[in-house]
Design a protein around this nucleic acid. Structure first.
Length: 517
RNA sequence: GCCCCCUUAGCUCAGUGGACUAGAGCGGGUGCCUUCUAAGCACUAGGUCGCAGGUUCGAAUCCUGCAGGGGGCGCCA
């Protein structure tokens, strides 16, 4: 690099990016540095490229470099190098694709956190899947991850919840704005059976336990587990006063109209403690994030929220910033709304629309694998339409089966070839389908790393789809178990490596990888 | 009025600075089961990348403006 002619002293060198080519005809990787340097150097990019290529000194067994107009350096991996990766991939098994990128940095992912005043709705499921897979990907990238569920177990809504149960118990009318679902009657019945007195607090906590058990069942079926259930009420065992005092000392507290307000640098203050004495969700959110980011001191906290909470991000970040917490340590992933398509009818699932399809019902109808895979086929920040009929179809039209079938085919081949012995002639894995499959497989560690960095779990699903396509093409065109012992052994090794890769990909998404279908 | 997300093939969506022919799935059309599972493969039709400017050697991708859809802007949760 130092030999680059004409590079001005002290000028910053652009980052050397090695990128994936989009067109296989251009090789596997490309470097666009020559194009970026051309302006500063005031020399033709092609000449710079030639000069750089000479300095790169790539091991000939790894790949070939070439220069392409208007100034790309392309790198094409050698088949021998690709073939040599198969053994290590197959042997790595579940650890293939994992990395130490995160250096065990403690990160918390908080997700689902739906209120314990009722069962989970389908509209909660997308956040559950996105949060779970973000957590899985972060683990795979070497972060030390805690998954937390925040339980809103106190406040005005909980009181209403307790009152609603009591009303049901005593056959009184449901209070204004109270809860009226069938599950309230069920809770009331069970409370009577358990001898719980008709006292609001006791009924509310009984009801919360009942609902949380119900939520956990749904989450279990979805394949989602939390490490820690954090109760909002614990914020009010002293932390709330401490934080309010600190805000007061910082001159951020205003009392007006009987309420306590947070004094913002924006033109709009927000209520912390309402006139009726109940803290707002904003207040609890501040206490909660102080607990997470200062008390418990996670390096980073990821909150998975529905898009309808978008308006709260700014003020929460301002408040924690005032309290001395670097706001970028809090990452809020907004999950956009889902609409449900049944036949010709489309129903939007927004909180305010109050449309409630229960998660239990959807799990019964389409099953966890299709549910998860469908959510992961969309980026979280795009609104999506969930086609129930497509998701429940047990055929190739359903993308989840396409991927699972690829895994099952490999599993079957490996079973048939289990007894085969012979020296694997790796150099015979030279057809376009075999080489293409290897190239796709080798992207897996990059996919995991990129998904973790961007916190974009949908990248896994798109990769899986491509990998499954490469597997199906290989399977179609290259018979694995034959009389030819050395070729059979080589293809079995390729199959093992491919199976490891697709199993890991499905595994990170929490989708089953069946051996038979 | 202000803030956030979206606008790419008939439908649902990837791609968010790079390369000739902008991709996938579904849906449409045509082939392929005497060979390890056809829940598969191959071929084909289908696109002014919302519109208009700008930056750049290069823009679906970045900037500005406009239009359309959704969400939010509460002492609701």
């Amino acid at each position: 690099m130092t030999s680059l002619n004409g590079w001005p002293a002290g000028a910053d060198l652009p980052a050397v990016l090695v990128e994936r080519t989009q067109n296989p005809a251009h090789g596997d990787y490309s470097v666009t540095l020559p194009l970026k340097l051309a302006r500063t150097l005031r020399r033709p990019p092609m000449a710079i490229a030639s000069e750089l290529i000479a300095a790169m000194a790539l091991a000939p067994s790894f790949g070939r470099t070439s220069v392409a107009a208007p100034g790309f350096i392309n790198i094409t991996l050698e088949p021998a190098w690709l073939q040599a990766q198969l053994g290590p991939i197959a042997d790595a098994g579940p650890s293939w694709g994992r990395s130490e990128l995160g250096r065990a940095s403690p990160v918390q992912v908080e997700f689902v956190s739906s209120n314990p005043t009722g069962p989970m709705l389908f509209s909660h499921a997308r956040g559950a899947v996105v949060g779970d897979v973000v957590a899985r990907v972060l683990v795979a990238a070497g972060f030390s991850v805690q998954r937390e569920y925040y339980v809103n177990d106190q406040g005005k809504q909980i009181r209403l919840f307790g009152e609603s149960i009591r009303a049901r118990m005593l056959n009184e009318p449901i209070p204004e704005g109270g809860y009226g679902g069938d599950y309230i009657a069920e809770i009331a019945t069970q409370a009577v059976a358990a001898g719980v007195p008709p006292e609001i607090n006791e009924l509310a906590s009984f009801g919360i336990r009942w609902v949380l058990k119900d939520i956990k069942q749904d989450l279990d079926r979805l394949g989602v587990q939390h490490d820690h259930w954090f109760y909002e009420s614990t914020l009010y065992e002293g932390l709330h006063e401490e934080v309010l005092k600190r805000l007061e000392a910082l001159g951020r507290i205003v009392k007006e109209e009987g309420a306590t307000w947070f004094k913002s640098d924006t033109d709009k203050n927000d209520v912390l403690i309402r006139r009726d004495g109940y803290p707002t969700y904003f207040a609890s959110d501040i206490f909660y994030h102080v607990d997470k980011l200062q008390r418990r001191n996670f390096d980073r906290v990821v909150d998975v929220w529905g898009a309808d909470h978008q308006g709260q991000i700014g003020r929460l970040k301002e408040a924690i910033g005032v309290l001395g917490i670097e706001p970028s340590r809090l990452v809020v992933l907004l999950v956009q709304l889902v609409s449900v398509k049944r036949g010709q009818e489309t129903v939007r699932m927004s909180r305010r629309a109050g449309v409630g399809i229960s998660l239990t019902e959807m799990l019964d109808e389409v099953g966890p694998d299709a549910l998860r895979y469908f959510f992961l086929l969309r980026s979280a920040d795009a609104q999506m339409e969930f086609d129930v009929e497509l998701a429940r179809r047990q055929s190739g039209e359903n993308p989840v089966y396409y991927a699972q079938y690829a895994h099952a085919r490999l599993a079957n081949v490996l079973k048939l070839g289990a007894k085969a012995d012979g020296e694997a002639a790796l150099d015979r894995l030279s057809s376009e389908w075999e080489l293409a499959l290897m190239r796709v497989m080798l992207r897996w560690p990059d996919v995991v790393r990129e998904a973790a960095e961007a916190m974009e779990p949908h990248r896994l699903a798109f990769f899986t789809d491509e990998l499954a396509a490469a597997i199906h093409r290989f399977y179609k065109n290259c018979r694995v178990v034959t009389e030819d012992a050395t070729l059979t052994a080589a293809r079995l090794l390729l199959s093992r490596a491919a199976r490891v890769t697709i199993a890991n990909a499905l595994g990170l998404m929490g989708v089953q990888a069946p051996d038979r279908m």
